[in-house]
């Protein structure tokens, strides 16, 4: 299959990319790693007039630690994150998750910003933004704004980004003392999108969990915080009874939708199994 014809410009600066987005509002697409966009073009699922190639904007490709947060440029490749010593030290779950995204060739090109902007409900990064309480900087001709990830995802491939906006950077607050986290997903083949996957983080003082955050992906139309399960675990030691209560909450928290191979009931069951395994890892 061949993509329909489109115009193409390689943006030399963030400002130029924003200007083009503004001019072609709605009919232009940012081309980052191309690992989702190019297949969509070839399948003729998307027919933009213009591709704005940001792949050479190295200013958007960085991993920076500040006093309060880790900042990841939107163009940072999955493989950059997988290999970053800072990420591994501060957020080992992100290192683990990066290794589960597709295959090495795709990770070498695909970007964290592209994944978040695309908002594929089965992707790892969007869920990570929820679990780690990230915020996102969006840029446009109108200027920049910073939005919490919590309010960014609106539905399948839908976000709160306006047509003339693009994602510039991702901000991850540095973990508080005593933070534990775990990541896991269930895929039939390595590299596949998950049937269900989750990030769990919590603060541990003594054996007691607090500030628990659980974000699931692959189960619903968008990544979700499992708020009921979070509450069920907060203030407990993550003991069997608490886990069982958290598992019970997932029915309402996730309300899974079927995929090609799994009914909602299976996805709920697997999510419960996964949750228990991840909570056990917080120990």
């Amino acid at each position: 299959m061949k993509a329909p014809s489109f115009a193409y410009e390689r943006a030399e600066s963030l400002a130029r990319a924003c200007a083009l987005l503004h001019q072609h509002a709605g009919n232009a697409r940012i081309l980052a790693g191309g690992q989702s966009l190019i297949p969509a073009l070839n399948l003729r699922l998307s027919q933009p007039d213009l591709l704005i190639d940001i792949s050479q904007l190295n200013e958007l490709r960085h991993i920076t630690v500040t006093a309060t947060e880790l900042v990841v440029g939107a163009l940072t490749r999955h493989a950059d994150i997988e290999r970053s010593a800072d990420v591994k030290r501060l957020f080992p779950v992100l290192t683990q998750a990066a290794a589960q995204i597709a295959h090495p060739a795709i990770r070498n090109r695909g970007t964290m910003g592209g994944s978040i902007a695309l908002a594929d409900p089965a992707a790892e990064w969007p869920a990570a933004t929820l679990a780690l309480d990230m915020s996102l900087t969006l840029a446009s001709e109108r200027g920049e704004r910073r939005v919490p990830a919590d309010s960014f995802f609106k539905g399948i491939y839908e976000t709160g980004m306006a047509q003339d906006e693009m994602l510039k950077s991702i901000h991850i607050p540095l973990p508080a003392a005593g933070t534990r986290s775990a990541f896991g997903e269930l895929t039939r083949r390595s590299g596949d999108y998950a049937i269900t996957g989750a990030f769990v983080t919590a603060r541990k003082s003594g054996a007691t969990l607090s500030a628990t955050r659980i974000a699931f992906f692959g189960v619903a139309g968008q990544p979700l915080l499992a708020r009921g399960a979070m509450a069920a675990l907060d203030g407990t030691t993550g003991d069997a009874a608490a886990v069982a209560r958290a598992q019970a909450c997932l029915a309402a928290d996730l309300d899974p939708i079927a995929d090609l191979y799994n009914t909602p009931a299976t996805k709920l069951h697997l999510s419960r199994v996964l949750l228990a395994r991840l909570v056990a890892q917080l120990a």
Binding site: L186, Y261, N262, T263, T266, H269
Partner: peptide
């Protein structure tokens, strides 16, 4: 095929 769902 023996999918996880069929086995479950």
């Amino acid at each position: 095929p023996f999918t996880p769902e069929r086995i479950l």
